[in-house]
Design a protein around this nucleic acid. Sequence first.
DNA 1: CTTGCATCTCACATTGATGTCAGGTTTTAG
DNA 2: CTAAAACCTGACATCAATGTGAGATGCAAG
Lengths: 123, 123
Amino acid sequence: MRIGELAARTGVSVRSLRYYEEQGLLVSTRSGGGQRHYTEDDIDRVDFIQRLYVAGLSSRTIMELMPCRDAPSDENSDSALERMAQERDRLSTHIKELLHTRDSLDGLIAAARADRDGRRTAA
Amino acid sequence: MRIGELAARTGVSVRSLRYYEEQGLLVSTRSGGGQRHYTEDDIDRVDFIQRLYVAGLSSRTIMELMPCRDAPSDENSDSALERMAQERDRLSTHIKELLHTRDSLDGLIAAARADRDGRRTAA
DNA sequence: CTTGCATCTCACATTGATGTCAGGTTTTAG
DNA sequence: CTAAAACCTGACATCAATGTGAGATGCAAG
């Protein structure tokens, strides 16, 4: 498929797909005229990339993780594996922080609601 | 306390504290010479702001939430309350995504480890 | 063949929080 | 009183992903 279709099917902009390629995260074959062509597999790949972006990883970091996904049996993926475990931990920590923040919000919301209802009852 | 101490005690840079004030998130009293002075309470306030930043909220959004924290009994905090509930939900969704991503990473890590150990045993 | 839509490259703009530098003023310690 | 350290404002830099626009080319359908 061409880039437009991949964009449509992943929900990622054409611009971003080209950027991913520029960063070495995504590879395409070129038609005679120079247009990018992708396979079905690339959809999953883009989804994965997106997920990591959402998780706050930089394209540089994602690049370091890719060998682990592409060639798990490759010798030099040992460092990628270590890197991935490290990022997993970072993510875990981040999730914990977010849960804490959510608790804070819940506390504020509950307090505000109670206060509001109190006022309403009093009025 | 002055800005340097607040920075030291919150782990937020002096530059950022000034920026928070510029965005209306933080208020300071000024000494005769124009230097900012803060109270102990401001430490919690800055911590709260930081937490929301980490949760991905923009300073604009944080500003909309502040009335709910500062004056929960204020009439016009109803909209802030609603906004806060909305952000809480957004955060929940985000956390769910991150958990999903962490699962993906766990899967890849497990696969890579299994593969590596398989190779080692075979070798 | 022609017309129109998709794609190409290249380059510059944007956003948001923060860093950094410069030149001047305030505060504090000796 | 004086020197050092902290602070002030203002402006410009940065980073990373993405938007956007121009000008040129590829490709598919009539």
